[in-house]
Each structure stands twice: as C-alpha cells, then as structure tokens.
C-alpha cells in the first residue's frame, strides 16, 4: 500500500536525467527526497504528474499505474514558485482548486479556512504581487493542497521561509500526514528531513543511492559517531592514536568524532582515558543525514555537482542503490525538457 517508483528512466537528448531510479513511499508518511540539483528530483515529480513521459520504468499507487490516476490525486508545489501577479489570493486559490474539480463555494470556504490557519486571513483580497516572497510561497502551498490530494509532491517547500513560517508549514504538513496523506518532500535542508521524514531516498545523477527508513539510511554507511566532552583539553591530540577515528567537528562543549565501521566506539573512550583526558560525556550516535549524504554522494546536497572538482570524491556508494525500505519521488535538472 504505497507509492512506488520502479526503475524510472528518462533521457533528454544527451542528458541521462533518470537512470533506473527507484524507491517506495509508505502511505501516510512524510518522505524525504534528497539530491543535489540535477539529481533527477523534478523530473521524477513531473513524470508522476503526467507532465513528462518516462522512457522506462513505472510509478504505481497501490499497484495501479500512475497514468490511470486523475490529476486531482496529486498536489504539487513546484520549486519554481509563481502566481498570477494581478489576481487576488482568493481568486487564484479558487481558480486552481476549480481546475482540480472543487466547486467554487467549497473552494472559497477552504481557502478562507487555510488562510486563517496560516494567520493571514487578510490576504484573501490582496493581489499576489503585493505579498512578500515568503507569503506568496504560503499561498502556493495552499494552491497545491486546496483540493485535498492524496499524495503531495513538494519541491523545496521551506526555502525562503522565515523560521516562524517554517514551523507553520511543518505543522501543516504533519497534520496532512496525520489525516492519511502521503507527502514527498524534496529538500536540501537535512535537519528538516531528520525532523519530519519517516523515510528517505538519496538520489544522485538519476540513480537511487540509498533509500529506506531514516534510521536505516543513517546507518547505511556503517560509520558511527562518538560525541565526546572533556574537561580542559579540547585539542583531542590523543585521537591520532586511534586508527579509523577522525575528529569531524571539534567543539568546546562537545566534539564529534566519526569512526569507521570496524572501529569500536569504546576504543575512543579507552584512548581518551589512557591519555589522561577527563571525560565528562561519552555518547555513541548515528551520523547526521548530512554526513550520510556527503558520504554517499561526495558533496553536500546544496552544492552543484556539475564540476569535476566538486564531484571529486565520488560517492563511495556502498549500496549501489541498496533498497532498505520504501519511499519517494525525485526531480531533475530544471528545464531540459523538449523531447
């Protein structure tokens, strides 16, 4: 019972946008769809929406091919944001909901209720061009969800929002999930994914690098973290004596040490004690999603891979697309579309 993307292939001329992309999104989950620009996220979403046709592979919902699903099944918040500048917020929301089959009176009621919930009821009569970027973004979010879609594809929903609005939007998304909606989030913001997503897929150059429940994906590199706090000596010079351990992020309060899979965390503690360090905190943890992403893809998600230099340390893709569990939807380089 889920949204499944299976072996999706899409080519634009010389560019291989998708190359066997796969993942599965459990129903009523928030799914994190992670990849740099050009990884294939937007292309995957466009294929799901029926705007593009895949060259191979398929997308199914509860086993049913997506091409048989009506348009209103999907809610889509595109990465490229835009509204009709001269139309009032209420008019546009009613218009977009109308295209999805929502009767006018219902749409007006829904729009007002959503605006009130976003604490901006006064926006109803304002033209889109009078709103700030962040507020326009909230309106676009509403345009995507007004018709109560079953699955929502959201491309970078949080970029450009201030912290207050990020919280509002997060709450709204989680509430939609609680009402049984399936949400696919594409984002660069790893901490958001860690906070909201039950499962994720990391994609790169049209391929799934790793996918599954968040906890398993975080362990997919095999590496672990040791969080260590010591009194007095913060240089942790003794760490050089522990093979396979690397000081990732030194800190006054707490230092983050990354250890290779074969290294036992206790050996770090033992080395510290042997060196006479006064340990006040010792904790074994999973690496952050950001570290996992870099480990797999070779660079942070918000850095364009384009150049050879940035792609320098290629993904030590341990799993070559290992399927840990279900999830998602992906996007591709923006604007390479004509057949």
């Amino acid at each position: 019972m889920s949204l499944a993307v299976d072996g999706l292939v899409k080519r634009f001329g010389a560019i291989q946008a998708l190359n066997g992309l796969h993942f599965e999104v459990p129903e009523a989950h928030v799914f994190g769809f992670l990849g740099s620009n050009g990884a294939g996220k937007t292309t995957t979403m466009r294929i799901a929406l029926g705007v593009l046709r895949a060259d191979g592979g398929r997308i199914t919902w509860r086993g049913r091919d997506h091409r048989g699903l009506p348009r209103q099944f999907w809610g889509y918040l595109p990465e490229e944001r835009g509204l009709y500048p001269k139309m009032t917020v209420l008019e546009q929301l009613v218009f977009f909901a109308g295209l999805q089959g929502v009767p006018r009176d219902v749409a007006i009621r829904e729009a007002r209720s959503w605006l009130a919930r976003f604490r901006v009821p006064e926006f109803a009569g304002r033209k889109a061009e009078e709103l700030s970027k962040g507020n326009q973004q909230k309106v676009q979010f509403l345009a995507a969800v007004m018709h109560d879609p079953q699955v929502m594809l959201m491309d970078e929903p949080f970029t450009g929002l201030d912290p207050v609005n990020i919280v509002l939007l997060r709450e709204a998304i989680l509430e939609l999930r609680d009402r049984g909606k399936t949400i696919v989030l594409s984002t660069h913001q790893m901490e958001t994914v860690e906070a909201m997503c039950e499962s994720v897929a990391i994609v790169d150059r049209g391929q799934t690098i790793v996918t599954g429940p968040l906890s398993e994906v975080k362990r997919s590199t095999g590496r672990r973290m040791v969080l260590l706090a010591t009194r007095g000596d913060h240089s942790l010079a003794w760490l050089a004596q522990v093979p396979g351990a690397r000081l990732l992020r030194p800190g006054m309060e707490r230092s983050e040490i990354e250890i290779e899979p074969e290294v036992e965390p206790e050996s770090v503690l033992a080395a510290a004690l042997a060196a006479g360090a006064r340990v006040t905190h010792f904790e074994v943890a999973d690496p952050s999603l950001e570290q996992v992403f870099i480990e797999h893809v070779g660079h942070p998600a918000d850095i364009e891979p384009g150049t050879e230099a940035s792609a320098g340390t290629p993904s030590g893709t341990p799993s070559g697309g290992r399927q840990i569990a279900p999830a998602g939807i992906a996007s591709a380089p923006d604007g390479e579309a004509v057949a």
Partner: peptide, 28 residues
C-alpha cells in the same frame, strides 16, 4: 482545511475537458 471532504478523491474521475478549458477561458 478542517472541513474534511470525501476521503477518496482518487476514485473520482478526471475533471471534464470542457469544464477546465472554460475555467481557463473565463480567467483569461
């Protein structure tokens, strides 16, 4: 948003071609 509607929209048919074209035409 709290006014919940029919929970299974995916079972409804696609909105009519004429209806949507007309909606777009009216807006234009």
């Amino acid at each position: 948003m709290s006014t919940a509607r029919a929970p299974e929209p995916e079972l409804q048919g696609e909105r009519g071609f004429v209806a949507n074209s007309w909606l777009v035409a009216k807006r234009e």
